[in-house]
Design a protein around this nucleic acid. Sequence first.
DNA 1: TCCTCTATTGGCCAATATGCCAAATGGCCA
DNA 2: TGGCCATTTGGCATATTGGCCAATAGAGGA
Lengths: 106, 106
Amino acid sequence: MNAQEKARYEVRATIIKAMGHPTRLFMVEELSKGERCVCELTDMVGADISTVSKHLSVLKNAGIVQDDKRGSQVFYSLLVPCVLNFFSCVESVLESRAKEQAQRTK
Amino acid sequence: MNAQEKARYEVRATIIKAMGHPTRLFMVEELSKGERCVCELTDMVGADISTVSKHLSVLKNAGIVQDDKRGSQVFYSLLVPCVLNFFSCVESVLESRAKEQAQRTK
DNA sequence: TCCTCTATTGGCCAATATGCCAAATGGCCA
DNA sequence: TGGCCATTTGGCATATTGGCCAATAGAGGA
């Protein structure tokens, strides 16, 4: 891997890494149902609002969500819905693991 | 999010996180072409073999790849090919970003 | 058996990531 | 303007990751 290739993989890894956190995963799933303001997500997540805000900025910097300031509230929405495909693939991985487990128990 | 839900998202995040590193992303792409031994991947990546081995164990623990010891070598192969879909989605995100950039430059 | 080759594991340090609190920012209304 | 509300940003402590070297383990040949 030369420097150029490495940079290529780094950019891509950053986007995937943005999805690789439980809270952010939850928020993306929630945003798939429609836009939500920071306060709504904060209530659902149950963490400090500053923590939620930072998670959202990670997703925003990755280019996965966008924000829309309306009045004193900020609404976030999903920009690239294909990230939802991650969920089904993750389920496949879990199924595959379960089968492996079953095999070993036999 | 209660404790059970949180655990659910944590398991899933771990799988995605395993994909969220440039070296591991590269290796998964390489493994999509067929099995590779640790030494081959080490040559391609250009890092210490212990580093590569640890990255592979992250992917293995996530359930994304499997290993097969044959003689003195260990061959890794992709267990759940749907992770390759991540790549196309990442490209979508990058395209979406590029459009956004173009908009702003207008 | 001894040596070599491949790979994994342990140890250590530097760099990142997380999460909270506190402070700052921006909007809105009295 | 003053104050409140929603959000972001800064700062800090702690936890996790990533990478190298050294040590260890296992296979196979001399």
